[in-house]
């Protein structure tokens, strides 16, 4: 019985992960500029990867495979913000202008920035 609950839970997690993956992919196509696309990519890196790997861990049970999957998840969670930061920083410093609805920085900064 408890096996079945774990099974159902893991399928639900994997389906939620697959759904958020596809939505993230759609977002990367739909959103207007680099910075907003990065938000869509970060969905697939956090919720998508997190739920799919959690579902796989539930399928694997307590074993070496589960530990390795956990290691992959931790690694993705540590590196994806670093990669996003490097990308956004490189894009802004090389003068890719973000499309902005409102800019809450001070005026002198707006003139200074590319």
């Amino acid at each position: 019985m408890s096996m079945m609950i774990i099974d159902i839970l893991s399928w639900l997690l994997i389906i939620a992960g697959s759904f958020s993956m596809i939505v993230g992919g759609v977002g990367v196509l739909r959103l207007p500029d680099v910075y907003t696309r990065m938000h869509a990519a970060s969905i697939t890196d956090t919720l998508g990867a997190g739920t799919i790997i959690a579902g796989l861990i539930l399928q694997a049970g307590i074993s070496l495979i589960a530990a390795k999957l956990l290691l992959i998840l931790i690694f993705i969670f540590f590196t994806s913000p670093a990669a996003s930061f490097a990308l956004a920083h490189a894009a802004l410093s090389s003068g890719v202008e973000p499309i902005l609805d409102s800019d809450l920085r001070s005026d002198e900064e707006k003139e200074k920035s590319p």
């Binding site: 389906i15 697959s18 993956m21 596809i22 990367v28 680099v34 696309r37 990065m38 799919i52």
Partner: peptide, 29 residues
């Protein structure tokens, strides 16, 4: 099903990588 969803996402990312327009869009993809 999960593998299929991942494949669809990969295709979408690939379209963005091909469309560009800037190098950073491609690196994100």
């Amino acid at each position: 099903a999960a593998a299929a969803a991942l494949l669809i996402t990969m295709i979408l990312a690939l379209i963005r990588a091909i469309m560009g327009p800037s190098i950073y869009d491609r690196i994100v993809a």
